Simulated scan of single mutants.
Amino acid sequence: MLNILQAPGTVSGQTAVTGTFTATGNGASFIPIPGRGFNVSLWGTFVGTVVLERSFDSGTTWLPITGAGVAISTFGGPVSEVFEEPEYGVQYRLRCMSFGSGTINYRISQ
């Protein structure tokens, strides 16, 4: 039996991305392991809007997650969602697109 101990936040081998927004801007990028779910969480007391985006070209172009052409990953309050990426090397990040007040805490992990 193989027993591997890893540091908190790196259970899958990926280091969690965490941070806060207190103004509009971009969070750090995260590259999930393909075919496995990854978590996106926002919490805190805030007025603002955050969107989950992904890049297929190493961060040059960022696109919102959509379904039938409609953004489905835009959040205006605390959330905890699970997403899955089938392709290798795709980067994800959170972008605070509008900010009114408070602190928006975030975490992307796998």
Rank of each mutant, 00 (worst) to 15 (best):
N105L: 07
S73C: 10
V90Q: 05
L2G: 12
P34I: 08
S101F: 09
Q91T: 04
G76P: 02
P32M: 00
G37M: 05
S73H: 03
R54M: 12
D57C: 09
S101Y: 09
N105C: 04
T22K: 07
W62T: 00
G59A: 04
Q110T: 10
A68R: 11
T74D: 08
E53C: 00
S58A: 14
T103Q: 03
V17K: 12
S80T: 12
S109Y: 13
V17D: 05
R93C: 01
G77E: 04
N26F: 09
Y106M: 10
T10G: 06
T24W: 11
G59I: 06
I65E: 07
T49I: 06
S80H: 11
F83D: 02
M1Y: 13
P64F: 08
R36G: 08
L2R: 14
G27N: 01
Y106G: 09
S58P: 03
F56V: 14
T10A: 13
E87C: 08
V47H: 13
L52Q: 01
R36C: 07
V47T: 15
Q110A: 08
P8Q: 12
L94T: 02
I108Y: 10
I4D: 08
A71R: 13
V82H: 03
G44M: 07
I108G: 08
T60P: 03
I31W: 03
T103K: 03
P32Y: 00
P64D: 13
T20Q: 13
T18K: 12
S98K: 02
T15P: 07
V90W: 03
P64H: 10
I65V: 12
T49H: 05
Q14I: 15
P86A: 11
V82D: 05
T15R: 13
F56E: 14
S55D: 00
G37S: 06
Y106Q: 12
V11Y: 14
A7W: 12
D57F: 09
R93T: 01
F46S: 04
S55H: 04
L5I: 15
S41M: 10
I33S: 08
T18P: 05
M97K: 15
V17P: 09
G13I: 03
G59L: 06
G9L: 06
S109E: 14
P78C: 08
A7H: 14
S109L: 12
L5K: 15
S98T: 14
A7G: 11
S101T: 13
S29K: 01
F99Q: 00
R95N: 06
R36F: 14
A71L: 10
S80V: 10
S98Y: 05
Y92D: 00
V82F: 05
G100I: 13
V90A: 06
R36V: 12
I65F: 03
G35Q: 01
S58H: 04
A68W: 11
G102H: 04
L52N: 02
E53F: 00
M97I: 15
S58N: 13
T66A: 15
F46A: 01
E81H: 09
D57T: 10
D57G: 09
N3S: 14
A23W: 06
I31H: 02
Y92M: 00
F46G: 02
E53Y: 01
T22M: 07
G77M: 09
F75P: 02
A23Q: 11
T49V: 09
E84M: 13
P8A: 11
V90I: 15
F21H: 11
L52S: 02
S41G: 09
G67W: 15
E81G: 03
V40D: 06
